[in-house]
Amino acid sequence: MIIAVDLENKFTTFGVYSSEKSKNLKLISRFSLKTDTSKSTDELALLLKLMLVDREISLKNIKSIIISCVVPDMVPVYTEISKKLIGKAPIFVSAGVKTGLNVKCENPKEVGSDRVARAVSATHKYEKNLLIISASSITTIDFVNERREFIGGLIIPGIDLWQKSLFKETSKLPKVEIINTDKVLGNSTIRAMQSGLYYGYKNSIMGILEDIFKEYKLDKSEIKIILTGMYADFLLEDNASKFIYEENLALDGLKIIYEKNLK
Rank of each mutant, 00 (worst) to 15 (best):
I132S: 01
T99D: 03
G96W: 03
I132N: 02
G112M: 08
V97C: 03
K109I: 05
N102H: 13
E106F: 12
E110Y: 11
V120Y: 10
L101R: 06
E110L: 13
Y126E: 05
V103W: 01
N107E: 08
K98M: 07
R118H: 09
A119I: 08
V93H: 09
I132M: 03
I133C: 00
V111G: 02
L131W: 00
Y126L: 05
S113R: 08
N102M: 07
G96P: 04
N129M: 06
N102Y: 10
G112T: 11
R118M: 14
E106L: 13
N129C: 09
K125G: 01
V97Y: 01
N129H: 15
G100K: 02
P108H: 06
C105G: 00
S94A: 12
V111N: 02
E127V: 09
D114G: 11
V93K: 09
V120I: 09
K128C: 08
I132G: 02
E127R: 15
G100A: 01
L131M: 13
T99R: 05
V116I: 15
A95D: 14
S113M: 07
G112W: 05
G96M: 05
K98I: 11
G112K: 11
S113T: 13
K98E: 12
E106V: 12
C105T: 15
S94Q: 14
N107G: 00
S94N: 12
R115F: 02
A119D: 03
R118T: 13
K98A: 09
A95V: 08
T99Y: 04
F92P: 06
G96Q: 07
N129L: 06
H124A: 14
K125S: 12
V103L: 05
K125V: 01
N107L: 06
E127C: 11
S134Y: 07
C105P: 01
L131K: 04
G100T: 02
T123G: 08
V103Y: 01
V116H: 07
E106P: 14
L131P: 00
A119W: 03
K109P: 00
H124L: 11
V111P: 01
D114F: 09
V116N: 06
L101D: 01
L131C: 00
N102E: 11
A95C: 03
K109Q: 12
A117E: 06
N107C: 04
I132V: 12
S113N: 09
R115N: 09
A117W: 04
A95H: 12
T99V: 03
K98W: 02
C105H: 10
